[in-house]
């Protein structure tokens, strides 16, 4: 049985102003129940793309369809359309501070359910259940701005989940989380996938992309879509990863021999996976062919 199309993005471009491009001619589709990673370097347009998909920004050119109808200013001001769209789609902002705007943590998590028409008692019960789940129950009456960075991230995630959305747009969800919270988030994502949720995650962390997603969209620093494929395909193409600046050429000495290879940052690739007697470290300009700076054959990454 074929899966329904959630988003259909066609020749999408967005500019923040003259000479400030954020996205250039991006086209792709997202199917129901998929988990897709948006990969790319800082400033390549990942967050902008998520905001466009959430209808918070209007495309400069091109179009975005959600469940078959184009997201337009007109539709977003239609109470029924907007209501159902917001019911189905939830965005986790990169900056949790932006997302938390209520006087207390509990009110923030309950905000969504109340908007959807839940009774105050039900909304409170949902909020308390999620806060308990994320280990935040004791902070329920705290002012969000007084929380730590990791706590704010977890409250923001709880706020998103409180409305039980079908689609989760997550902007760098692993950022500012300690290792235990990262593992917990991975568990949460796994369960959300098992329950049929559609998830789009913007990240530049290749390790997490490999852990959570089956498909990846790689954005270039020129704000175009470089590749749309399975995570394995995308992550195995080091030439493209170098081009997108999500990995970099790393140069150092093994014993007395200068040695260079593409280097990844991430949960699983954040450390050097090789042993070497380091005498000095230096970063070199990436080369298009993925070869070592020394002229030796390509080195295995990680």
């Amino acid at each position: 049985m074929s899966r329904a199309k959630v988003f259909h993005v066609e020749h999408l471009s967005f500019d923040y102003g003259p000479d400030l491009p954020a996205l250039r001619d991006v086209s792709f589709e997202v199917l129901d129940g998929e988990t897709v990673c948006l990969l790319g370097a800082n400033g390549c347009g990942k967050s902008t793309l998520l905001r466009l998909l959430d209808g918070l920004l209007a495309p400069t050119a091109g179009r975005i369809e959600a469940w078959g109808s184009e997201i337009t200013k007109e539709r977003l001001s239609d109470e029924a359309w907007n209501g159902e769209f917001r019911r189905r789609v939830s965005l986790l902002f990169q900056d949790a501070d932006v997302q938390l705007f209520c006087p207390t943590v509990l009110e923030d998590v309950a905000f969504g359910p109340l908007q959807l028409g839940a009774s105050p008692a039900d909304a409170r019960a949902r909020a308390e259940e999620l806060l308990e789940l994320f280990g935040l129950a004791k902070l329920a009456m705290r002012v969000p701005s007084t929380l730590s960075g990791g706590q704010k991230r977890r409250v923001a995630l709880a706020s998103c989940l409180a409305t039980d959305p079908d689609v989760l747009l997550m902007d760098e969800p692993f950022a500012a989380l300690d290792p235990r919270s990262q593992v917990e988030l991975l568990e949460v994502l796994q369960q959300l996938q098992d329950r049929g949720k559609t998830i789009l995650i913007a990240t530049h962390d290749l390790g997490f992309a490999e852990e959570v997603a089956a498909r990846a969209l790689l954005l270039s620093e020129e704000h175009t879509l470089l590749v749309d494929g399975t995570v394995e395909e995308v992550l195995s193409d080091e030439r493209l990863l170098l081009q997108a600046n999500v990995i970099h050429e790393h140069s150092h000495r093994h014993g007395g021999i200068r040695h260079s290879h593409p280097h990844r940052h991430g949960a699983r690739h954040g450390t050097h996976h090789h042993t070497h007697g380091v005498q000095d470290h230096a970063h070199e300009e990436p080369r298009d062919d993925g070869h070592c700076g020394s002229g030796r054959p390509p080195c295995p990454s990680g």
């Binding site: 329904a4 959630v6 129901d32 129940g33 959600a66 469940w67 078959g68 109808s69 539709r75 239609d78 029924a80 359309w81 159902e84 769209f85 019911r87 189905r88 949902r126 259940e129 999620l130 789940l133 989940l161 039980d164 079908d166 917990e184 568990e187 949460v188 369960q191 959300l192 329950r195 049929g196 949720k197 559609t198």
Partner: peptide
């Protein structure tokens, strides 16, 4: 850690958005 049962309890809403 297990998500509350009400998350994803119903079938995903995939129909066209109402106007």
């Amino acid at each position: 850690m297990s998500l509350p049962t009400w998350i994803g309890a119903g079938p995903p809403r995939t129909g066209p958005l109402p106007t």
